[in-house]
Design a protein around this nucleic acid. Sequence first.
DNA 1: CAAAATTAAATCGTGCACGATACAAATTTA
DNA 2: TAAATTTGTATCGTGCACGATTTAATTTTG
Lengths: 152, 152
Amino acid sequence: MDDEQLKLNNQICFPIYSVSRLITKAYKPFLEKMGLTYPQYLVLLVLWENDNISMSKIGEKLLLNTNTLSPLVKRMEKMELLQRKRSDKDERSVFIQLTPKGKELKNTAVPIPEKLLNTLMTEDVTLTEIMLLKDTLNKWSDILSEKQNDEQ
Amino acid sequence: MDDEQLKLNNQICFPIYSVSRLITKAYKPFLEKMGLTYPQYLVLLVLWENDNISMSKIGEKLLLNTNTLSPLVKRMEKMELLQRKRSDKDERSVFIQLTPKGKELKNTAVPIPEKLLNTLMTEDVTLTEIMLLKDTLNKWSDILSEKQNDEQ
DNA sequence: CAAAATTAAATCGTGCACGATACAAATTTA
DNA sequence: TAAATTTGTATCGTGCACGATTTAATTTTG
């Protein structure tokens, strides 16, 4: 049987899956100081760039459904990083606003990307290579998410 | 404040994180037919290549700890895909063997990698690009997992 | 050999992911 | 405008991930 393609080393998804987890782990020491998980950090990235937006808009940017985002954001509200407010215009929508505490956390976060890059870079994985990877994956992400949206 | 690096589009990890989830989603229709989740499929990939190996060896290959793997494998035992057996030589070790049902599933799985590749490829993401990505990520995965092992 | 250290699994608790479903508010349609 | 549909969010159940701790078996060390 021609099963060469079933070998772990020939899989495409497996390295993406494992590198994703390895990078999340690399974030941990930095995020721990702020009491954040990686998905929570992502929500803050969105809000720091664009405060007072709806749940659906956040989900759209992070490719997360409400069944993931809803409890995640509620935990962040409990941590007093943000506030949930139902829109007056459209009572279905919930808008998310950063609290002062949530805004302030940005200062702590500013040095993270560079620190992380230093952690991730090695002799064998150069900055150029990482940037190339990032661009390819960004392109792919756009295409795949659109594709999966179309399917339903 | 120079916060350009905090923008979502400039993040390195985010596209890896989202593409990983998007690809797992792309696997779903194929794996669903076999009643498998993606991590369960990974365990089978390992076993099809190397039957009757220990829990720790599987975890090493998939970069998964026992606290993830242990319940995962138990679920697969319940599905009668494999059997767990304590080693006689070393009573601490548990070795995993495929059942006939688990072995047979390989036949169903053989066409998956090609089908998936067709799903993942588009005009804008060529096979060459995907293969390049795979190699870079494989290299990175090796380096990062070793690095994180050293740290503790 | 006995005590200390190491190793292999398992368990516990928390937080994602996500399919499925529910539900109320808004919009479209007949 | 009333009925049907769509939209935005929330909830439920299941299955990962993973840090921390536990337990038992083996190996190392004094």
